[in-house]
Amino acid sequence: MKIPITFIRIILSSILSISAISISNAQGHGPLYGLPTPTLAKGGVNLNVAGMSLSTEDETSYMLRYLFSYGITEDLQINLTTPTMIERLDNSPRTRGNSNMPANSDIEASLWYRFFSNAFGVGKRFESTVIFGVSAPTDDVRGQVNVGNSVHGAISTGYASRTWYAWLGGGYQYYLERDNEQLGDLPYASLVVGYRPDIFMGDYPKPDWRIFVESLAEFPGDNKYIAQPNFTEERSKKVLIGSSFLGLYGAWGISFGALVPIVQDLIPGAVKENYRVSFNLSYWL
């Protein structure tokens, strides 16, 4: 008997929503889409399960992602993330997706090094992090283009306090050529501002919530493929904006949010997006 994909989606969404509500809590203590800075203690372990959906004009993807993070030191963190694709896009846009997880079906390993940290008050700190990652695809072809391995680098700086948060970051992902075809590269930048209202200022171990306004700017390059009629050196320009919520309680975190494009100046053949939706369940061991 063939089970309709829509039915599977509904069941999965329900399970994920219920688990999110019942277990309560998110990804690090920062944004969902923008680049954050690592927070794991030396020897600390963080497990994440994320549900991600990206909708284009013609189709919608659904994916679960798992992220394992380990604090080698309080300033150096290693991450490994793997996907379970529920529904792939035939023609997908170039994007990173969540802050430390690819939006596509890549398996990615990354190192996060916090090279600057200044804790200057109760609950307050400035910190900067550099990120380097490598990824391998789990699909052969993406949008009719052969998919190769990729490298990713980014830098991010942030401010955290008990009330206000801000992160500014930028990154670059480069896909290697595979069988004479190559996915377009992706320079991007993110800006996030967060706020925790007084009502959620309860002291530990009470739960705390915070809201983020997130923005992403992406400049994906053109794909290269055999029998390509017109390769262009120009880049698409996309700006997305949205919000996310983060709830933290003890060792648990939950975050959820959405982004919508407000600027989409696309090169020919690039995919127009409608929205991105994500949620993330996090547990610190």
Binding site: A41, K124, S161, Y204, P205, A251
Partner: peptide, 18 residues
Amino acid sequence: QEVFGMDCAPCAYGLERG
């Protein structure tokens, strides 16, 4: 002990556990 830079519940949880 005064602690600077600790802003979130998991931060407090991690320190308490440690």
